[in-house]
Structure formats: C-alpha cells, structure tokens
Write a protein that binds this DNA or RNA. Sequence first.
DNA 1: TACCACACGTGAAGC
DNA 2: TGCTTCACGTGTGGT
Lengths: 222, 222
Amino acid sequence: MQIDFSGATSRAIISHPHSVESEHSDVEASCKEETVGLLEDKRPRKRGRKPANGREEPLNHVEAERQRREKLNQRFYALRAVVPNISKMDKASLLGDAIAYITELQRKLKDMESEKERLGSVSREPSVSEANQYTEMENQDSTIDIETVNNEITVRVSCPLNSHPASRIIQAIKDAEATIVDAKMASGTERVFHTFVVKSLGPDRLTKEKLIEAFSHMSKSS
Amino acid sequence: MQIDFSGATSRAIISHPHSVESEHSDVEASCKEETVGLLEDKRPRKRGRKPANGREEPLNHVEAERQRREKLNQRFYALRAVVPNISKMDKASLLGDAIAYITELQRKLKDMESEKERLGSVSREPSVSEANQYTEMENQDSTIDIETVNNEITVRVSCPLNSHPASRIIQAIKDAEATIVDAKMASGTERVFHTFVVKSLGPDRLTKEKLIEAFSHMSKSS
DNA sequence: TACCACACGTGAAGC
DNA sequence: TGCTTCACGTGTGGT
C-alpha cells in the first residue's frame, strides 16, 4: 500500500493513496509551469529520488496509460463521426445518443425486414423451368406457368394478394360488397393500368360512395 | 496552460501539475484519507461537512467525479447490451465494435431503403376523393379513378410498372419480342392471378423458350 | 518479473 | 462564485 517514497523531506505521508504529492519545495511551484513548453523533465525535483527505478514510478506505465487514454478518446471521436445529431458533446451524452441511435437503427431495420417479408416476394420473381406440355415453376410465393395453345402463348402468374399494388383496391371492392365482373390489365413502358368492372346488388351511387369511403380509409391506414 | 493536448506521440509534456499541493496543510492529508477509506458509502453521499468547507479539497468534487465516472460506465454497460458480438473486450474495443456495428446498420438500412424505393410504392395506396362524373385522386405514384356507367362501376388503377409484381414478366415478354394480346386478372382471398395472352411473329416454340430464358435471367438478377 | 485494463483522486478550463 | 467535464498520474488486481 501506500508506498510513500523516499525520504527527503517526506513527512507523514502514510496512508493517502495517491498521495505522492511529492514534497513541496517551496520555490519550485512556478517551475512546473514552464516545463510545459519543452522540457520533459517532469516534476520539479527533488534531489535524490531513486534513480534506479525502484520508485518514482516506472514511467512506463504512465506512458502506457497515456496511450490507452489516447486510443479511447480516438474511438470517442470516431463515434462522434458516425452518430448523427449529437446533441451535447460530453462523453456520457455521446454514448447515450449512440445507444439510442443503435436501437433506433435496429428497430427500423427490423420493421423494414418484416415489411419486406410481408409483401416481399414481389421483388423476388419466380424462376422457370420447362416441362412437357406446359411449364411451371415455383419460387418463394410466386408462380409462373406457360402454356402453348394454337399460335398463342398463355402466361399465368400467381402471386400473394397482399404483395400486389391493387390488393387494397380489391379488398375495398369486397368490403363494399361488390363483385368484380372483369379485371383487365395493360402495361405501358413505365406504368401498369388495371381496370376493374364492378357490380353490386344495390344502387350504383351507393356502391361508388362505399368504394370511395373504403379507399379513403385504406389510404389512411397505409 | 499547458494543456498539451496529446496530439502526436505524446511524451515530453508533463510538467506535472500535481504536486502543487496548494498550501501544505500536512495534517489534513490524513483526514481526507480516512474519509475515503471508511466513510465511503457509495452513492447518496452528501453528508454534512463541506459546504464552504475551508480547505482540503472540496471533497465535493471527488464525489461529483465519482458520479460522472459511474454514469459513464453505466453507459458503457448499456452499450454492451445493444451491440451484438461483443467478444468480451475492453472499453476501447467495445467502442470500436460499436462503431463498426453502427456503420453496418447504416449500410444495411440504406440498401434496404433504396431497394424499397425501387419497387417501392407498392405499399402505398392512393387515396381518393370525389369529383363530378368521375373521381380521380392521385397520391404518390398511384392513381385511382372511379366511373359509373349504366349499372356498372369501372375502377381504373394506375401504378408504376416497377412496383408491380408482374413487372418483370411483362418486361420479359417485351424482351422476347412478343406482344400482349390480352391481360386479365383475378383475385382470390389470398392470391392474385394474372393471365397474359401473348403473340409473337415467330414460331411459338421459339418464343416460349425465349420467355423461359428471360424468366430465368430475371429470377437470377433479382 | 512485467503487462494490461480499471478506477480513483486531483488540478484546471468552460459555463 | 458555483458546477461540470476533462486529462493526468497513480494504485491495484488479474493474466
């Protein structure tokens, strides 16, 4: 424990852990200040001191500790670079912000992943292989099916309803208790057009309003 | 003013601020010592003594520093909780891992976002409002249009091609130099079925193979 | 023996 | 004048 240290003036040091505090050599106080600039002599001195290294402090470790601190601060600085919106600059707050940011990213990523899963297989198109009369291949949730009849080729595509752009429209139509009489589709270079011919048992006007209402709802909920 | 700042290789600075020891009040040294030694209740310190205390070290501050350190370590601990794959490690490494993890999350998120953008607006359905003869409302990239004719209601939906589940199929058909003669669509409770009737100038067999080829390509590239 | 990573008390700088 | 945050040197326990 407390080492104390060499004699010289020393005096009661006992206990007092860090203590060192060397001894005050009255005059030297000012001295320390200028050392800053160049000198490396560390502490103002005292005569004798244990040159052997025995004590004084293996100035090894003070250097080692210095490096450790430097590395750590370097990391702190790097962290500041990757975390946006760093409110305050103090270390603790920085860590707090970083933690919050990480959890936010995790949440966002999770949300996106699950959403992508939900209507995901859209991006994943099925692959195809050929069989005899017709070809059918299934991949993920989608299916493609090619059939040749006369001089026409029929391609049938099946995909999950909830992954379809028109899914909510179709659902709205069903909600309005109407039935789809015909559904056509045309594609331009950049857009797809769907046409649904709908019929209901009640009066058209009412059905139309129901549809609009349903659409409004769904656009809100989306 | 020494500050130094630890920029480069360190070393040389020192000057050793300590040692000052203000006024040498020899006796007090021990006093403080024991306060730390036994008193030492950790947290809610704040015992009497020290308001305006005369000298010694506003032992107030040592407690403040203690709290600061505790808070900081607490954050470190929290950080360990949110960062996966922390192979034990010291603080500096932890920070490094956290930084790497953050950048990884950012990258992933960005990837997902851009992908979602590409075939994105699927999840966003348009909203509707009513006009006179027919209703049209546009939102994001999609359009809905409702028209009443006789006792039938026609709903027209337009959406970006690249957000459509069949976009790649349609593209493949075009690539095969075939034309879509008819495109129908039917919806069940859970799935949507598209039917494309395709015609080409060349022999059917060839066209079919072209289609299969095109589908295979696209499923790979997706 | 020496090394490593910590936590501690302490002086100073910025509000 | 307070209070807060920081870097520093140092003691210590674990390999």
